[in-house]
Simulated scan of single mutants.
Amino acid sequence: MSLTSNIADGRKKKRRRMKSDSDISRPSPMQSHIDACVSFKDKQVAARVTSDAKMDEWFVVKVINFDEKTKKFEVLDEEAGDDEEGGVQKTYKLSASCIIPFPERNDPSGTQEFPAGRNVLAVYPETTALYKATVISTPRKRKSDSHVCKLTSNLLCAYLRGYLLEFDDDEEDGALPQRTVPFHKVVPLPEWHRQRDLCIKMRLNSEFGVLNM
């Protein structure tokens, strides 16, 4: 075998070895997804805890466990139930589609910022329930507390101001009050929620058109 052939053969083996090493060190997309789900343990997340599409209830819950076999989250509603339920905390087993992680409250660098006018899900002040809301002002656009800013980074200072939101169906005296919600209690509105709202609008427009024929 010639020297040229030996060199070419050696390069091929090296490429195969490098590819093999890369495949071993790089987790599959499925494994990455599982690892991310497992990492939610002991963290609070937003969860849709009912299978009834008409109810559409979202609450703040704590992840107890993620079952890698069933791909289900076990979560705890830390708020005690009412007297009819015995005043006990409830647990649920939910699929990943019913879970939305909250932003890291101490690290807003990787946080998605929702622009003014965007619909979101947000924790209603002084509750553990999430409702649809519209962004009026983002944290970066709001006036800061100079004392707080001296103690934090500029980015964290901006996000500590929170979002200014208007919650749907939160009418007071004929107007929607604007409420401040911490940035780490605001999450994207699920796509199926947007599609449902679009269907409702289309149906109403259709009915309105029929009524005006």
Rank of each mutant, 00 (worst) to 15 (best):
S2P: 15
T4H: 07
T4E: 14
T4V: 12
S5L: 13
S5G: 09
D9T: 05
D9K: 08
R11E: 08
R11K: 12
K12L: 12
K13G: 13
K14A: 15
R16L: 11
R17W: 06
M18R: 14
K19S: 11
D21T: 09
D23E: 14
D23L: 13
I24K: 13
S25E: 10
R26T: 15
R26E: 15
R26D: 12
R26W: 09
P27G: 10
P27R: 11
S28L: 15
P29K: 10
Q31K: 14
H33Q: 14
I34H: 04
D35F: 05
V38F: 06
V38P: 04
S39G: 08
K43H: 14
Q44I: 02
Q44K: 07
V45K: 03
V45D: 03
A47M: 03
V49M: 12
V49R: 09
V49G: 09
S51K: 05
A53R: 08
K54M: 07
K54L: 08
M55G: 02
M55Y: 06
E57K: 08
W58G: 00
F59L: 14
V61C: 14
K62F: 01
D67Q: 08
E68M: 07
K69L: 11
V75W: 00
L76F: 02
E79Y: 02
G81D: 12
E84I: 07
E84T: 07
G86Q: 05
G87P: 07
K90A: 12
T91V: 09
T91W: 04
S95G: 11
S95W: 03
S97A: 12
C98N: 10
I99H: 04
I100S: 02
P101E: 07
P103T: 04
R105Q: 15
R105M: 15
P108A: 12
S109D: 15
S109H: 13
S109G: 10
G110F: 04
T111D: 05
Q112M: 13
A116T: 13
G117L: 03
G117D: 03
R118A: 10
N119P: 01
N119H: 06
V120F: 05
V123P: 01
E126R: 10
E126G: 03
L130W: 00
K132M: 03
T134F: 03
T134H: 04
I136C: 06
S137H: 06
S137P: 03
T138L: 01
P139Q: 02
R142V: 06
K143S: 11
S144C: 07
H147M: 09
V148W: 09
V148I: 14
C149E: 14
K150V: 05
L151T: 13
C157H: 13
C157E: 10
Y159W: 13
Y159M: 02
L160E: 00
L160S: 01
G162E: 04
E166P: 00
D168E: 12
D168P: 01
D168K: 06
D170I: 00
D170C: 06
E171Y: 02
D173H: 06
L176P: 02
V181D: 00
H184Q: 05
K185I: 01
K185R: 13
L189S: 02
E191H: 10
W192N: 13
W192D: 14
H193M: 11
H193W: 10
R196Y: 04
D197H: 06
C199I: 03
C199S: 11
M202T: 03
R203D: 02
R203P: 00
L204A: 13
S206E: 03
E207R: 09
E207P: 01
F208W: 06
G209I: 08
V210K: 09
L211Q: 10
L211H: 10
L211C: 11
L211D: 12
